[in-house]
């Protein structure tokens, strides 16, 4: 059974890119284009990890993160933002990892893997 990753990304092209790359890694991927949509998916489906953008219209990534934590505070979340400065915002510290967007997706992919492995070992 593939691990189910939810990519929350309002930029259509980027969402498509992350989905393609993560599917190649063997994950099953769902894309949400807004925070509200992401929360609906988390409530209704089994999600193993969330890749979360910050700058999104409506509910931004920071708000979405605290809402995710309210639903399931063990949910692994990897923040994926173009703005490295959000690392300084303590509201993002609830996430398991922070990746600055780059054309080289190897950091995102390895962070997703590491975060999932870490969570798995914590549970066993």
């Amino acid at each position: 059974m593939h691990e189910h990753v939810l990519v929350v990304e309002d930029d259509r092209n980027q969402g498509k890119l992350y989905a393609e790359e993560l599917r190649e890694e063997g994950y099953s991927v769902t894309i949400a284009t807004s925070g509200a949509e992401a929360l609906d998916i988390i409530r209704s489906q089994r999600i193993e990890l969330v890749v979360l953008d910050i700058c999104m219209p409506g509910k931004d990534g920071i708000e979405t993160l605290s809402d995710i934590m309210a639903i399931d505070n063990h949910m692994p979340v990897v923040i994926n933002s173009a703005y490295g400065t959000y690392r300084d915002n303590f509201m993002t510290w609830a996430a398991d990892a922070f990746v600055v967007k780059s054309s080289n997706l190897s950091e995102l992919k390895s962070t997703v893997r590491l975060t999932l492995d870490k969570k798995m070992s914590e549970h066993h």
Binding site: L17, A82, V100, S103, L105
Partner: peptide
């Protein structure tokens, strides 16, 4: 910051 988003997309799809 603004150019990081499109650059990441361009680079990512170019890699693919």
């Amino acid at each position: 910051h603004e150019i990081r988003n499109p650059l990441a997309t361009i680079g990512g799809f170019a890699h693919a």
